[in-house]
Amino acid sequence: MKSLRASFIILLMLLYGYVFILQEKHAQFKDITLENPIPVSLYRVASGYGRQLAAEMLFIKTAVFLGEVKQKAPNTSYASALENNFDAITSLYPRFIDPYYFSQAYLPSLSRDAAEKNNNILDTGITAFPKDFAFRLFKAINFILYLNEPLESARSFAETAAIADAPPLFGHLAAVFSAQGGDIVAGLISLKALLASEKDKGVRSRYQKEIAIFEQAVQVNDALIAYQKKNNAPPDDLNQLVPEFIPAIPEIKDTFILVYNKPLLRLVRPTPLK
């Protein structure tokens, strides 16, 4: 009887081993996918005291997906899930900094919508860390690089420049992108403010050169406004302003180029960022 029992258990184990190997052979390992997260409010209710850990686990899950995502996979297939996951993580735990860096690294390049969503996510980070320059820098760069909104970028840089101990670089970028967006006067004011607070001779000299260029551009802009007032329409070409509204169109080159896309006059870098 005993040997029968032993044989039976050995047979059962062998059978289990055989079926297990069969299952392994036929198993199809699916690609890692990223699902949309459940609503943040539900996460808060379910996780309670452990909501920070819930956010960190969601972040790890997203990071694993990003690590495994195949290059050939179309970006649009996971963009929405990625946006929603980063949004959920940052809403659940705004002071956890890693998701902002990952979101900036992966989202803006996917699409215009994703770049906009990424800026909303960065807003959560900016509210949580009002004195942190990195998230503001990311947001301003996204406006210029991915959303082609130089004025919004200039506004973000100007807000960053207003923070105590902010490097003067932000103020300068605000001026440059204001001019690129068509608000040359605002750019000029920013440059003059920077010049007033700058002590370094080399930097002061650079600001002075740029101010001279901006002042020339402002003259052309004033002429444009005058033309528009008189003719109730902007000119097709800047040469139409000469000589009635301006003696000659100044030759602006090297550091900046004067670009006129009716009805907007802009001052752009010769090799613009975008």
Binding site: Q52, E56, F59, I60, A63, V64, R95, F96, I97, D98, Y101
Partner: peptide, 10 residues
Amino acid sequence: DFIPRDIGRA
């Protein structure tokens, strides 16, 4: 290993 920066907090 999946937390690159905020290790202390996590």
